[in-house]
Nucleic acid binder design. Sequence first.
DNA 1: ATAGTATAATGCAGAAAACGCATTAATTAT
DNA 2: ATAATTAATGCGTTTTCTGCATTATACTAT
Lengths: 290, 290
Amino acid sequence: MTIQQIKNFLELANELHFWKTAEKVFISQSTLSRQIRSLEDEMGIQLFERDKRNVKLTDAGKFLKEHWSATINELDQIHRQAKKIDEGMSGFVSISYPGSITFRFLPRFLETLNANLPDLKVELTEPTDENHEKLLSDYRTDIAFSRDKISNASIDSLKLFSEPICLVVPYNHWLNKKSLRDFNELQDEKFIISGLHQKTFFASLLRNFFNKHGFEPKTIIESDFGGMILNLVSKEIGISILPLSFKLAKVPNVRFVELDEEIDLYINWRKNEPNKTIKKVIEYVKLVKK
Amino acid sequence: MTIQQIKNFLELANELHFWKTAEKVFISQSTLSRQIRSLEDEMGIQLFERDKRNVKLTDAGKFLKEHWSATINELDQIHRQAKKIDEGMSGFVSISYPGSITFRFLPRFLETLNANLPDLKVELTEPTDENHEKLLSDYRTDIAFSRDKISNASIDSLKLFSEPICLVVPYNHWLNKKSLRDFNELQDEKFIISGLHQKTFFASLLRNFFNKHGFEPKTIIESDFGGMILNLVSKEIGISILPLSFKLAKVPNVRFVELDEEIDLYINWRKNEPNKTIKKVIEYVKLVKK
DNA sequence: ATAGTATAATGCAGAAAACGCATTAATTAT
DNA sequence: ATAATTAATGCGTTTTCTGCATTATACTAT
């Protein structure tokens, strides 16, 4: 039993005329006649009462006309949707990201995605565990934004942009770009930063930074959550170091002082990803970049 | 695109193994491989990602597995129902009947129908216009019960049973079978009967009856509705003549006095009726008969 | 009644498709 | 390296499908 056969049946059920119907569906009258016959045989159900002159639906035929018609419409709908998925116009991606891009890059990116792939469903996760390689290869995420460059034979990466890291201080704090001549002046400041023993990339970046400048910060609160850190700085509990992106959070009573140190953002995905949706999303990220 | 192809796809989508699936659906592995391929080509959608070793569903494939599965189940359901209709196990009949069979024959008949064809829908009409032939040929009714024999080349009839007609009197009325020696004794009785000028069969039967016995009844109320007549008799407003069947209405304070006159019940239907449901219903009526 | 017309079914022969066997090619396991 | 697994493919055969031409039948007009 062919979908086309059913469609032809529906056409005939409307026309009730073999010749006209055959013409309409671009087959010969004999073919149509035999198609309907074979449909009837296969189902073991008489669909039409026909003498040499008239064609009319049986009760079963009426019933099937109604229900098949509905089902065929459903099917067409389903096939259109499947086509969309196949073409990556719709579907599902799981994205993991560092908190710092919450305020500028990520919303822009999601906006672009939504404009171009309105049927796409996105799952966002802000992983505490930063093992991007494993997240990707275990299919727990499809696209991983990361601050560190990942070198792995089965992962493709692309650097999207760099941005300065900044000292984050309360508005009236003595410190500004010009006043800061020597980092040793920060000796007595109370820092609110990620625990330096952490294995996250940002922690190791901080570790390097303080090493380079030869002093150890006085850490009074440890936190990995930028939003939390900003609020503590705003309440003048201490100062911190964060990527410039956090400025966009627009927390009041906070100033960002750019340092001569940059941090990168990479996008990572499984090499040879066959999923068209994911590939398409990766293409769009290139449009947004910085 | 074949229904079978879709079913095979669904099987493969579960098994994710060509050889096992092919065995399960009783075709060769090569055929299955090509069927899936042709499905993919026809839809223009990749359903499986497969290398020489592994088979897995694409996103579009997952989507179609889910939705096709639902649709195929619906279709199977629809086909079962259509089969029922085709076999006359289900469907629709319109039945017209004279009020007199409301109390005994019709409920029995409907009970039998319901027991044997539980999915059958029945429309009952008690026509005031008694033109059964026209009702049938205009498809306003499928089965017409009638009191008169219908002679019409395109209508088949069957006599189901005969029953006496009765004088219907209040309980304490002087009249009974033995006391009634001569119909002229009814000269002074007040009758509640169908207008004798009416063209209904029962009216003409009454006309004949009174002619035969050579007197004209004193009619105080004209009515064609047995139920109404019975209630009026019960209130001792007059007496009437009705088929014995009305006794089953069990209206209180009413006695039936059988006369030596019978009335028939016929069932009528369109000759060569192709509708299996109707034909089946006609068969069942024969089981109930009397 | 009779001839004419409309229309679904059917015989036939050629075209296309489907099928299974055997084989190939690629991958994994030992 | 070798064997085993497994999806794809070439090929010949069988089956099915298709359209043309024709037939059979019922309705229409005269």
